[in-house]
């Protein structure tokens, strides 16, 4: 969890409700999209494919009416990581043989630069796809689709309940903070004062949450949660249109072609097809 940052907003899901063809699309197609495009690009030996797919994702973002946000997200991710990787891999990769430029203190190597761009490209496909999927899909719909595809209902519960429980704990922590300041806990001032405020606020949050666990478990029990030998059904119906079925097939085909090509390319020397 070393990379975890604080969450600034009170947002609990990245879903942005906009009426678009991408929003209406069956969530399973989007999951296929993220996985097939991502793995395909990762396997494919040349870096142009990743950037071609990123261009395609921009088209998808435009159809989803999210072009602005998507561009912002891509730039905010791509620019810093590209700079860092160019320094780390371009200058210091042990694989570097071909020197592109000599800065005196270090040499920029072609192999490292190629590796950096390949990594960034693959990451952009994965993360960009993931971003588009989560901003255009209502979480409940996503979990329903996954359950239809065989996801355990307990796993579905965990994902949705985690998303929904956070705002409630946030409200609670706000009340607890008020209650503790009314008992003399100062939340502003020196670092040590603020440190001292942490425990009195998180303490009741944890304790009262643990008490809630009991009753929530009872609720689930009485409502048939996790009954054995029953396949749960869902209230909302999801159907794949013929177009979506076709799209799924195209995505899988893309993945297979990429992987086959990658295998072929890797086996080139063995097969005696050296360049």
């Amino acid at each position: 969890m070393s990379k975890q940052n604080k969450i600034k907003t009170k947002k609990t899901s990245s879903y942005i409700p906009l009426d678009s063809p991408i929003d209406r699309m069956h969530p399973m197609v989007k999951i296929y999209g993220v996985l097939c495009l991502g793995i395909g690009c990762a396997a494919f030996p040349f870096l142009w494919l990743s950037y071609a797919v990123v261009a395609f994702l921009f088209c998808v973002a435009w159809r989803a009416k999210l072009l602005g946000r998507f561009s912002k997200f891509i730039i905010a991710f791509a620019v810093p990581i590209t700079c860092m990787l160019l320094i780390i891999q371009g200058l210091y990769s042990p694989k570097n043989v071909t020197v592109l430029a000599d800065f005196g203190f270090a040499r920029l190597g072609l192999e490292g630069v190629v590796y950096a761009f390949k990594t960034v490209g693959t990451l952009l496909v994965f993360l960009g796809g993931f971003y588009l999927m989560t901003t255009t899909t209502y979480p409940g719909k996503l979990v329903t689709a996954m359950q239809d595809a065989g996801l355990n209902s307990k796993a579905g519960y965990l994902v949705l309940a985690s998303l929904n429980v956070v705002p409630q704990i946030q409200r609670r922590i706000a009340v607890i903070q008020e209650a503790q300041t009314a008992r003399g806990v100062e939340v502003e001032g020196t670092m040590s004062t603020r440190f001292k405020a942490f425990l009195p606020i998180i303490g009741p949050t944890v304790m009262s949450s643990l008490v809630d666990v009991q009753e929530r478990g009872m609720t689930l029990e009485t409502r048939g949660f996790g009954v054995k030998d029953v396949r749960p059904t869902s209230f909302v119906a999801l159907y794949l249109t013929p177009g979506e079925k076709a799209a799924k097939k195209v995505l899988v085909a893309f993945l297979i072609v990429c992987v086959l090509f990658a295998v072929f390319w890797a086996l080139r020397p063995v097969l005696g097809l050296g360049v």
Binding site: I7, A161, V165, V166, I173, I202, T205, L210, E221
Partner: peptide, 19 residues
């Protein structure tokens, strides 16, 4: 079931702790 209900709440505690 108790453990399963605990999980989302523990996730919430992680997140609000950070917040």
């Amino acid at each position: 079931v108790k453990a399963i209900v605990l999980i989302p709440i523990a996730v919430g505690i992680n997140l609000v702790g950070g917040m």
